[in-house]
Design a protein around this nucleic acid. Structure first.
Lengths: 337, 337
DNA sequence: TTCAGATATGAAAACGATTTCAGTAACCGG
DNA sequence: CCGGTTACTGAAATCGTTTTCATATCTGAA
């Protein structure tokens, strides 16, 4: 394992000059540069990254916090983020909080230890007051999250609008008894969607009915359960808004199994536009989220913060959501038209 | 940002003693230990990780190579690996090769730069001869991969058996014209499955028929295409083996759309036992892979290698696959029994 | 009583780079 | 031809730890 010293010796130059070549500093003559390059190649030299980090106080690594990776929404986020990171010469460390405030807090130490240059939170488990002190050690950027109190950049999607357009679509189809499904994390993504949901209802003069609200629906299994809960009601809903395609798929799968016709007997909208929406029978109306764009932007904002060293400033970057109409809300023939 | 020096001063001791406390070394008296702990807490001290890495020549970080994260199989692998890593006090850096040998080779430098203690390859894009030299800089462990030439540990699943049991199941259902779908990466996962597929066929005295082989099926869209290709054949197959649940889902979705009955007109087996297998109508017969176990084992083997510093030794750890029969190969009534 | 080992602590070297500072040579305008 | 940039190079300080080496005290067995 050769060091910069070895390279310097072989090239007959000083460490300083070698370092200059490595870092593309000006004021190195072309012939010396050649010498150094040659020596580096001959030794198969690569700079030791710990030494660089220690001296230059940067690691070119950022940490991405997600609750869990298996959730397709976060898979996509991680995938896009890693690609952007690689393009900018950064590495990505993955931190799964698994919805645990303790785990989150623990991972936060990566910033204090200077193991990463910054932290991107795609999930928040602690009160902002708990996280804020870490800003003394490096930048924090929120991605797909938002906190009233947080004085940091936030790259997010217009979830209020998302809830609104999905619900409005159901209303326009003539539905008046619309159930509402969400997972209830402490994230305000779901809350924002609920605001949009209520707004659409209000426009049609409909009251939010708590008996139609299910706030513990995360996975497809929950969808199956909710389906039965809904159908057991005195007056079942004729449509259901869900916070994820998986839940929507669970509802539809269970409905299929019991001979219910979708959308005739129950219209369903999902959220995320995951692959499954096109595979299910019927295909699922959903809300497309520009996850890739958001991830890319979040990383770019992070890099900007790392360089500018001004962390405690609120900035909002918002991307629009788009309704994608498929068969689960509109009967086949109409979709064809 | 306080350093170990600050802690030492505040505690009225030397850096050495503070370091001993941090690293749980023996020979520190209880009262001094208390002093140090107190000083650390008071200063909110956390050791600088670059400095530690530089001196101790270890980073407690491992890199995980996957082609892409969105693929649910790899999502699950990453998720499980991150959990195991965290349990052992390691961080995980994600490297998406996107099936590119250049990207893979580039990420390999993480080992040379000593930015990671080891590399777990869940995907191989280069010839082993190209990767082998990196063993001089740290351990490489194969996970879900295998290479004849590779003199390193390999944690894998019995793919030959997987291909065999899935195919045998179809044969037992009476099928004789069985199509074969796979994605053709240079990985030998698919090749091993094909060996199992052929073995089962051979046991029934059936020849592998190239007209029924589709080696370019990765995603659900490919499944849709393959469905039409199969059905356009002079004598279409009555069953199809696929290398992934997504492809199986694509085939089934397209079949549904065109009024084909599954499994009566075409039986379908998938691979991976992903969530979608239970959501599709009909549900999909598939092969369950113990991904979590494999990931955990791979990480443990990696840690063992890091400590033992003996990298160039071949070891095989194999986990069994299990057939899960659902509706896509057996008509509804039979499954109920 | 003695001396070998165990216990406890600190000074200084080492890890491998980047950065600061200083110095020399070449160039250029007045 | 002189003074001041600009171009180029290297010695030494520095980043924040861990590790090595040295030293001192204490313990218990011979």
């Amino acid at each position: 394992m050769s060091t910069i010293e070895d390279v310097a010796k072989l090239a007959g130059l000083s460490r300083t000059t070698v370092s200059r070549v490595i870092n593309n500093h000006p004021y190195v003559s072309e012939d010396k540069r050649k010498l150094v390059m040659e020596a580096m190649k001959q030794l198969g030299y690569v700079p030791n990254s710990s030494a660089r980090s220690l001296r230059s106080q940067k690691t070119d690594v950022v940490a991405l916090f997600v609750p869990r990776i298996m959730n397709p929404f976060f898979s996509q986020l991680v995938e896009a983020m890693e690609i952007s990171a690689a393009e900018h010469g950064y590495q990505l460390i993955i931190c799964q909080t698994r919805y645990s405030p303790e785990k989150e807090l623990n991972y936060m130490n990566l910033l204090k230890m200077k193991q990463v240059d910054g932290v991107i939170l795609a999930s928040i488990q602690n009160d902002w007051k708990v996280l804020e002190p870490f800003l003394d050690y490096g930048p924090i950027v929120l991605c797909n999250e938002f906190d009233e109190q947080a004085n940091v950049p936030s790259v997010m999607l217009d979830q209020v609008h998302g809830g609104y357009i999905a619900t409005k679509h159901l209303l326009e189809q003539g539905h008046r008894r619309i159930a509402y499904c969400r997972g209830s994390t402490r994230s305000n993504v779901a809350s924002h969607r609920e605001i949009g949901f209520r707004k659409a209802l209000a426009e049609y003069g409909i009251e939010f009915d708590e008996q139609y609200a299910f706030r513990d629906a995360f996975h497809s299994e929950d969808g199956r359960r909710v389906f039965h809960q809904m159908m057991a009601l005195p007056t079942p809903p004729t449509a259901v808004f869900t916070g994820s395609d998986e839940v929507a798929a669970g509802i539809i799968s269970e409905a299929n199994k019991h001979g219910f016709r979708i959308p005739e007997q129950l219209a369903v909208v999902g959220f995320d536009n995951q692959e499954i929406t096109e595979l299910m029978e019927p295909s699922i109306t959903t809300v497309h989220q520009p996850v890739d764009q958001m991830a890319k932007k979040a990383l770019e904002v992070m890099i900007e913060k790392i360089h500018s060293r001004k962390y405690k400033q609120r900035e909002i970057y918002e991307f629009p959501l788009k309704l994608i109409v498929r068969e689960s809300t509109v009967s086949n023939k109409l979709v064809q038209l």
